[in-house]
């Protein structure tokens, strides 16, 4: 087991290194002078020179990478061009909002997706199964930004049930110590803020959860169908167990193994989806930030956030793999 974890950990190192090279190189793929590309044609020579030195563009490329990696390993993602912010600090300030959103979406997807998938598999080819499967296919076929806009035009503009965007009503003054607004308000017992936060969270979380929900439901169904056809499920029936025990204990426990992996893989999708969702709903997380930075050509921010997200994806996949080993005795004992 320890050997397995170690092997998995080591295999992540080259990938992380590769990602860092890719992200580092990305500024050099920009056609022409990256400094001018960022500042625009009318930039003063002084500011161009400043950006060039701050990006270290005047040094040989391997040295630039060395300096870059040295900073990254110390947790320094550099300085933004327009506002000269410390990118790492800004990232940590914005990331909690994205975590709130992504986590809410993932929880929603799991809580609805797994039961729907199980029930579909058990009632195979019923109207419920066919309906759920068609709906889930519609779910993965839907552009989530469109879904978000449709929800806004219906529930915000027409019905006025939910706000169109932002994380809290602007007039509410709330000091969040951890930047997790939901958690902080709950801990402080500030119900007004908490409910307001929840109201703002609802629509973006639903929009962002659509695709993972559909994928988890389909995956659960197919894993369940696979498992329900296995010999050991037949054995469970032959023992005289009631169907709930057969399905929920003997079958589901096995079917969840692939579902865990799929759910883990959704993290990357959620973070990428957050770019669209946060932009539409003005949710102040890293997704909207990276999009705004692209429009503003503030490439160091794009670089930093991309590296951060990629590293996160690699780490989450690692954690999923390792937890998989804990769940499956066949891997555990190797």
């Amino acid at each position: 087991m320890a050997g397995y974890i170690l092997r998995r950990l080591l295999s992540a190192v080259p990938v992380l290194l590769g990602v860092s090279i890719l992200v580092f190189a990305f500024i050099h793929f920009i056609p022409g002078d990256p400094a001018i590309a960022m500042l625009g044609e009318r930039a003063t020579p002084e500011s161009v020179a400043r950006v060039r030195t701050s990006l270290g563009l005047d040094k040989p490329i391997w040295e630039q990478y060395g300096i870059y990696m040295g900073k990254v390993l110390r947790g320094d993602l550099g300085t933004s061009i327009l506002r000269r912010d410390n990118i790492s600090q800004e990232l940590l300030k914005r990331f909690p909002a994205t975590v709130e959103l992504a986590l809410a979406a993932l929880v929603l997807a799991i809580l609805l997706g797994i039961p729907a998938g199980v029930f579909s598999a058990v009632k195979r080819n019923s109207w419920f199964d066919n309906g759920t499967m068609l709906l889930s296919l519609v779910g993965v076929s839907m552009p989530i930004f469109w879904l978000g806009l449709m929800m806004q035009s219906l529930f915000s503009v027409a019905l006025g049930w939910f706000p169109t965007g932002a994380r809290l009503t602007a007039t509410l003054k709330f000091q969040s110590t951890t930047n997790f607004v939901g958690l902080d308000s709950l801990l402080q017992g500030n119900w007004v803020v908490f409910l307001d936060w929840l109201r703002h969270l609802t629509m973006p979380a639903i929009a962002l959860s659509t695709i993972p929900l559909a994928i988890i439901a389909r995956m659960t169904r197919s894993a369940m169908l696979d498992v329900l056809g296995q010999d050991y499920v037949r054995t469970a029936w032959a023992k005289g167990l009631r169907w709930s025990t057969v399905v929920l204990k003997h079958a589901l426990r096995n079917a969840l193994l692939p579902v865990v992996t799929v759910a883990g893989l959704q993290i990357g999708r959620l973070l990428a989806g957050a770019i669209l969702t946060e932009t539409i709903f003005s949710w102040p997380g890293i997704g909207r930030w990276v999009y705004e930075s692209i429009l503003a050509r503030d490439y160091p921010i794009v670089q930093g956030v991309t590296l951060f997200i990629a590293a996160l994806v690699v780490i989450v996949n690692l954690v999923v793999d390792i937890s998989y080993a804990f769940l499956d005795p066949r891997i555990r004992l190797q």
Binding site: D231, Y232, A236, G240, R242, N254, L327, D328
Partner: peptide, 22 residues
């Protein structure tokens, strides 16, 4: 259910796959 596994029980061809792996 009162009969299965109690008064009539059954064993199968592929014993290893008949036991639940987890």
């Amino acid at each position: 259910r009162q009969i299965r596994g109690n008064r009539i029980s059954m064993i199968f061809q592929q014993p290893t796959s008949c036991l639940n792996p987890v």
